[in-house]
Design a protein around this nucleic acid. Structure first.
Lengths: 120, 120
DNA sequence: TGGTAAGGTTCCCTGTAGGGTACCGTGTTT
DNA sequence: AAACACGGTACCCTACAGGGAACCTTACCA
């Protein structure tokens, strides 16, 4: 209420409208793998194959796709080494790093929620 | 597979598996309207019709659905007054309140992100 | 001469989150 | 006798996020 009502303006990002910063954040990291990817990259720059190993239960295609979107949104930096076979390193941009505290809280909150849910 | 620091085990919630608390949190508040609903309820207990007014761009059906899920997840409390016409009040549970700091950060982060994106 | 490496892309398919519309119940007011 | 109040439910439909499988590139090595 205070947020969107007081400004009364709609926020737009890539042709989509958002009433509130929350929706923007969710649009950026709400994908099925994005938050986890950011979480992992926060600890280390990683090669594509490293990420594949971490996310063994998804496909190369999904990883590529999510990474490209994160890159397009300025949260992840993609560095290609011009060599064969290819070498590509992913790391967080400053903006990507800035979301880490939120991810941390989400991680803790989710764990605590489950703990509470599983101890009736 | 092994998630970095916080857990080595797979977490389950209502038959679904999560590798990390982040995914749990997203599963609970990642719906299209849930975070915003929690956000609004954090400021006030609200009647269903209040929420309808706040979320004028969704349908009664969607609101009901999201609210019921939030209730089922223990984040929202639903109080029915036995009268005609019906009166139903929604409020946050303690668990629902506990996620507010995250929503606040998400709101700020999203706004800042847009601000940065729109001033190149 | 073909296997392998890493990091993709292309095409096609599916499940489901999200949504539209219409109807319900029951007291009170016009 | 009908309209309205409020908070729903029932039924049906669609777009698109997510996913599976196969193919691509290019240098090197056996």
């Amino acid at each position: 209420m205070q947020q969107s009502q007081s400004t009364a303006e709609v926020m737009t990002l890539r042709d989509k409208e958002y009433k509130c910063g929350i929706d923007v954040t969710l649009a950026l990291v709400g994908g099925k793998w994005k938050a986890s990817i950011l979480w992992h990259l926060a600890q280390d720059t990683m090669r594509f194959s490293d990420l594949q190993r971490q996310f063994a239960d998804t496909t190369r295609k999904m990883l590529t796709q999510q990474l490209r979107e994160l890159e397009g949104d300025g949260l992840v930096h993609r560095k290609v080494y011009p060599q064969v076979p290819p070498k590509v390193e992913y790391s967080l941009t400053e903006q990507g790093k800035s979301i880490f505290p939120i991810l941390e809280m989400m991680c803790d909150w989710g764990s605590n929620y489950l703990k509470a849910a599983n101890t009736p």
